[in-house]
């Protein structure tokens, strides 16, 4: 399951985008999903993200994210109706509780909880898109320009993580061969067994860190200005994707300031859509779909390449 959550190189158009263009697209989706409260907009952003995930052949990964996200929506659906007093259409009068006072559940609060759950699914889907679209190294390369030492720590740790998992598996197998059964025993016994694993891993990893530091020094770490061997080139398709994302962000933010895409929940539910909403949403979704459309063309039409 862990492998599916990690970035996998599939040589797809969206994975080949410049990291800045890819991050701009993802940030635009994220900001728009946080600005708007209209369920139509949130569903639109969800579908648009889903299209990109489909173009990245990541539906399996998306399913895992959505499963986790659905679990997280449960408290949102419960807490919002219980704590909100602003709704006018009361569905249920509950008992008086010590901290919260008299509980009343209103239709508006239930609807607000549902819309916020939709937003959570949007946000989780956008992060799923980030996971399968941007290579961690490329994301860290952006950080490297501002914080070299921090980026180096993160890069080293990212490199070591899969190696350590394999190392941990090896240690576990050795323990199993020696008669340790990790699936049986009380909580204390299980804790003991698992922490022994970490103990052995800690000791061997700390020894490795000394060797790594010596290898870094042998390669002249810290002796002067660093050189950069690989630079990502900003190609025309990156420019198109970045421009479409910027346009969607600008138009979306302007629309939100003018009152589009923002729904009134209290005291009574406001209207879900107007013609202006429909036009703005259609334009924004068209702009947000540009990278996916380019990806479709890149794979099917040679003139796009």
């Amino acid at each position: 399951m862990l492998e599916e959550l990690f970035y996998q190189e599939k040589e797809l158009f969206l994975q080949k985008l410049h990291p800045a263009a890819a991050m701009l697209h993802i940030c635009t989706l994220l900001v728009l999903s946080l600005i708007f409260t209209n369920p139509l907009y949130l569903v639109g952003i969800f579908l648009c993200t889903g299209l990109s995930v489909y173009a990245l052949e990541g539906l399996q990964t998306w399913k895992l994210f959505i499963k986790g996200g659905l679990l997280m929506t449960v408290p949102i659906m419960i807490i919002n109706p219980l704590v909100s007093r602003a709704g006018a259409t009361i569905l249920w009068h509950g008992p008086r509780l010590p901290v919260f006072g008299k509980i009343t559940v209103s239709l508006e609060a239930v609807f607000y909880g549902a819309v916020m759950s939709m937003r959570l699914l949007d946000v989780i889907s956008i992060f799923c898109l980030y996971n399968i679209m941007v290579h961690p190294d490329k994301a860290l390369n952006i950080l490297e320009r501002f914080a070299f030492k921090s980026a180096l720590v993160l890069s080293l740790a990212t490199r070591m993580f899969p190696a350590m998992i394999r190392h941990l598996e090896n240690i576990k197998q050795v323990q199993v061969v020696r008669g340790v059964d990790f699936s049986t025993g009380s909580f204390r016994q299980k804790l003991d067994k698992y922490t022994n694993l970490i103990y052995i891993l800690l000791l061997s990893s700390l020894e490795d860190s000394m060797e790594m530091a010596e290898a870094m020094q042998a390669r002249a770490f810290g002796s002067g200005r660093r050189m950069c061997y690989v630079r990502d080139v900003f190609k025309p398709e990156d420019f198109i994707c970045a421009a479409s994302s910027m346009t969607a962000l600008f138009v979306g933010a302007l629309g939100a300031v003018k009152g589009y895409g923002v729904m009134n929940f209290y005291p009574y539910l406001g209207s879900v859509y107007s013609m202006g909403d429909i036009y703005l949403l259609a334009f924004m979704l068209a702009m947000l779909s540009v990278p996916t459309l380019l990806s479709w063309g890149w794979h099917r039409c040679r003139y796009f390449r």
Binding site: S205, A213, M216
Partner: peptide, 25 residues
């Protein structure tokens, strides 16, 4: 120093592994 950076990176990776190793509990 390079040793401190390597040590911080290793401890970060070990701490990250802690999430996986104890996932059963």
């Amino acid at each position: 120093s390079s040793k401190e950076i390597a040590l911080v990176a290793v401890m970060s990776a070990v701490a990250a592994i802690g999430r996986v190793a104890f996932a059963a509990l």
